[in-house]
């Protein structure tokens, strides 16, 4: 059955799309200028000597590149800004509700996924490195009561995924802002996780052929038709969805794994008052933009949108008159 070779070609195509697509998107982001200094901070910036500044302030309000890098590490490995996740309630007089369970399930999901990916190295390496075996042993040490040992990472990933998806389904505001693509990628994850767990615990499959297939992919050694014909249908579903997901990553929100490094609010040191930030695409920064007619790049003039009072008044005449009538006192509508 030669058409089974589709499954051998599939991962290469998916990986090519993934690598090229990711690098393309990284380069596109790298081409974007950051015209303004916009770090968001949640700590005390360097001030007078008597103003207390702890190491947490240094992370949350970094004053140089080193501490900005530390903040990036906290962001990437501990999801620091998600840990501040609170919900603002107007009806409760501006009280914030703690919604950090999102942080908890997000971090559980990401780290479980990391462990699952590393565990899969046992299919792609021969002989298997010791740390992969050790990781799998530690992963299954709690669930050793059943055969094969229940691996905690997959259970945790499944529970966390249920919460992250349930949040988008059952909470009204989150459902409102969820796009079909959000559900799509969560659906892919669910199919991959469930099919993988089914193969381990319920529908037993002959893994020797799966490993031979995986080795043939990684060593660029085409598998024999015998190997391909012995692949279980459930494995093919699992495998196909993994390939589709990998190919889909550059087009999806999952690109946050690269995008997080480009967040201007995270990766810029908060040194506005120490250093002048020059708009990188402005060739003549000596004169402030508002004092010029525009920015000249390659002979083209990009005009600044200056608005004088008369034009503004013409635009919003009705509202401005109404406000003036009330002697400029504004009250919220109740």
């Amino acid at each position: 059955m030669t058409f089974m070779y589709i499954f051998y070609v599939l991962p290469y195509v998916a990986f090519a799309i993934f690598v090229v697509g990711t690098i393309y998107r990284i380069l596109e982001w790298a081409k974007c200028a950051v015209p303004l200094k916009i770090p968001t901070t949640a700590g005390q910036q360097p001030a007078f000597k008597f103003v207390r500044r702890t190491w947490i302030d240094k992370i949350d309000s970094p004053s140089n590149k080193f501490w900005a890098f530390v903040r990036m590490l906290f962001e990437v490995f501990l999801f620091r800004s998600l840990f501040r996740n609170t919900k603002y309630y107007v009806e409760k007089a501006g009280k914030n509700a703690d919604t950090r369970w999102l942080w908890l399930f997000a971090i559980l999901f990401h780290y479980s996924l990391l462990i699952i990916v590393i565990r899969h190295l046992r299919f792609f390496t021969n002989p298997t490195p010791k740390f992969v075996s050790l990781l799998e042993y530690l992963d299954g040490v709690v669930g050793v009561a059943i055969v094969p040992p229940l691996l905690m990472s997959s259970v945790i990933a499944l529970v966390a995924l249920a919460f992250l998806w349930g949040r988008r389904i059952f909470l009204a505001k989150e459902r409102c802002i969820s796009l079909p693509s959000d559900h799509l990628i969560l659906g892919f994850m669910a199919v991959i996780l469930v099919s993988g767990m089914l193969m381990r615990y319920i529908v037993k499959i002959d893994l020797s052929y799966v490993k031979m297939f995986a080795l043939s992919i990684i060593t660029f050694h085409p598998p024999s038709p015998d190997v391909l014909n012995h692949l279980h249908w459930l494995f093919l579903i699992h495998f196909t969805f993994v390939c589709i997901t990998i190919a889909y990553l550059p087009f999806s929100k999952v690109m946050h794994f690269a995008g997080v490094w480009f967040s201007p609010t995270r990766n810029m040191p908060n040194d506005n008052r120490m250093r002048r930030h020059v708009n990188p695409w402005d060739p003549n920064p000596e004169v402030p933009i508002l004092a010029r007619t525009g920015i000249v790049i390659d002979g083209m003039v990009f005009k600044t949108k200056k608005l004088d009072w008369d034009t503004y008044y013409e635009m919003y005449k009705d509202q401005l008159d109404e406000i003036a009538e009330k002697n400029y006192t504004l009250k919220p509508e109740l």
Partner: peptide, 28 residues
Amino acid sequence: VILGILAFLALLAMPYWVTAGNIKYEDI
């Protein structure tokens, strides 16, 4: 950016460097 892209590619090549390039195809 170049450092980041290299780190990304290095992570993808993980199966090769964790085994020091020693992956043997075996018809078990």
